[in-house]
Nucleic acid binder design. Sequence first.
DNA 1: AGAAATTTGTCCGTATGTATC
DNA 2: AGATACATACGGACAAATTTC
Lengths: 144, 144
Amino acid sequence: MPTPHYGQPRYRAIAEELRRRIEIGNITPGTLLPAESALMAEFRASRGTVRSALAELRRTGFAMTAHGRGTVARLQAAPAPTESEADGPAVQSSLESRHTPAGDDLARLFGIQPEERVLEVQVVTRENGIVRSVVRTYSLTEED
Amino acid sequence: MPTPHYGQPRYRAIAEELRRRIEIGNITPGTLLPAESALMAEFRASRGTVRSALAELRRTGFAMTAHGRGTVARLQAAPAPTESEADGPAVQSSLESRHTPAGDDLARLFGIQPEERVLEVQVVTRENGIVRSVVRTYSLTEED
DNA sequence: AGAAATTTGTCCGTATGTATC
DNA sequence: AGATACATACGGACAAATTTC
């Protein structure tokens, strides 16, 4: 089989699919993801590709891996409002991440080219549904 | 050849050797490290192992890799003399803030116009002089 | 401008080591 | 001890970005 990765590589597509399952709740945060061998079978991918996908999930904060145990989906806060609760402000946060070109300012700080991509993790915090703060954390894209 | 990695894996030993060369100045920061093919020959290691070593250098902030160009040793900012020296990485942070136009993305989140200004607080964290993360926190400028 | 060479990126398969259950 | 799961290492092949000629 050739190795075409038009647009986006396979390991990233797998990572996105797994992230989707975690966000949907299909994979409950705190529980184990399927083993690498299971993911290999499901996605018909090699071990290396599956491991790259899991590495991507770790980088973006959606999973943590322990030797001999497995990869655990990390909880993303957001205990589901359920309102009532007398009155305490309903605070929720959402997290998302992406690879984006650094731009001039960040490029100068990191010592890279503006076109180079960095990892951006964005946390949006809402109070009673109103956006109160947006925190963007930038770091260099690290592999493996 | 078998695959014993007593104590420390091979890729990490290679990474440490390269890091030593950078620190000594044997490899001038800002210049290219030897290509993966050259490192394979020198350390008699497979490409995967060499790439793991380079990934380690990126993680630890000693290198940055660009597709098709090579891996560049990153410059180490001033060692920041002063103080105890103790041990453990020297972590420093600088903070600055400014009012800046929201832009499209933030405007959509906050429900304002893109030209409207928001407060941006930026914290740059350096480890041994190397920029590790840039955190930008946006919030609406509160008027009294 | 274009072709070739160089260099890193992705993917596959296999084997063995190490940690946990 | 055995089974399961992740970690390290090898080898080969093709894709994509950059540089060189």
